[in-house]
Design a protein around this nucleic acid. Sequence first.
DNA 1: CTCTCTATTGACCGCATGGTTAGGGAATTG
DNA 2: CAATTCCCTAACCATGCGGTCAATAGAGAG
Lengths: 225, 225
Amino acid sequence: MADEQAKEVQARSVGTEAREQAPGSRDEILRAAMTLFANRGFHETSMSEVAREARVSKALIFWHFKTKEELFIAVLNRLLEPYFIDFAEELSALDEREQILRLVEMYLLFVRDNANSVRFFLAQLLHDEHRGESGLGSQVMQLYEGYRGLLTSLIAQAQQRGLCVHGYSSEGAAAFLLSALNGFLIEFLFMGRPALDPQHALAMVREWLFGETKQGNPDGGQAVA
Amino acid sequence: MADEQAKEVQARSVGTEAREQAPGSRDEILRAAMTLFANRGFHETSMSEVAREARVSKALIFWHFKTKEELFIAVLNRLLEPYFIDFAEELSALDEREQILRLVEMYLLFVRDNANSVRFFLAQLLHDEHRGESGLGSQVMQLYEGYRGLLTSLIAQAQQRGLCVHGYSSEGAAAFLLSALNGFLIEFLFMGRPALDPQHALAMVREWLFGETKQGNPDGGQAVA
DNA sequence: CTCTCTATTGACCGCATGGTTAGGGAATTG
DNA sequence: CAATTCCCTAACCATGCGGTCAATAGAGAG
């Protein structure tokens, strides 16, 4: 209950037109909505709940955001931010083999560290028919295809240099690799148990793609029977 | 539109107590609810919609099913039926290598043919926290773990007989294989494009697991570069 | 014909929801 | 100070929801 009433002077500085960066109620609302939407979904979250969670009147939410949908897409965009990573800078210095492995690792680590929002977007994509249409689906697909394209071209280069021993087409290999990664993702998201930690997964990918066998212990973790 | 009004005499035969098998309104309601729940989810589907879709009064639904939740779990159970397949009979006659491949193929074909319900269960598992608890989650997990266990033991046998060239632990190999399969599933469910048809996927699995290269054309479909 | 049991309905209820409105207080501006 | 603008609220409204109820039709049993 503790209605601590932290009024928080709310940093004017509005000055000329810099109406960004007001750490006031708007952000509080966004944060509340983010958690609620993520944990319960859109229809299962009421505006009153958001209001309560943000310690703000419901009407204020409708002052900041015209409708519930508008609040929702605002939350979407904010959640989407960390998905835009600049691969180029980090990869440019490595050779193809290392680039591929780093790319894979980044995928795995990202999923591990952003499990909540990944789960959220997955659920969103699943039952909105917005797939294909302009909207969330297209944005996510764009990111995904970008990643796949990068992976494909890297594999093609590696194949040309003979680093990559397999006889697949680069597209086929990339598709298979991505499938494996998505499989890790599912396993990670659904069974809380991280049956395959990123490092182990990465090792298996390395062996599959480059024929390298991790020297030392080849056991994976869940050796049970 | 065509409200064909197929009244369908509705087959009494109630006789003594066989109250199963009445292809009447109850089934119509279940069918309507199935599609609606699958396409929109639980909270987004109203009982009035179900009633309209089933061409039945709302009150009748509440006569057949006490609450909305009860209708929902009835739908769940009906959707879950095709998931119970008896692997044993079909696999017993083959050697390990063929058993594994057949198992994989069954997985892929099943996902392809039951995409809708798979999508539905996935969505359900995603944002209900019922994961782990008794309920849908546990049932699905049980099926999944059964499949994984079967796969693991088969791979172990194949490894003992030297059919399986890789140095993974059987658990690790099964986990990797399942991840790849789940990846196919994701790719298939989300991008409508079947970037990897079951046959192609199966071929890649075969090559990975047994080192066999499909004799003849090694292209899978999207051979481009 | 009447009694009963199953199947079905339209009308209704209380409630929570998304959204609105009228207004109040504080700061900025003239 | 008065006017304006921004931020914020309590109270309200219309709608649609899950769910109930009394009534009823129809088919068999006696």
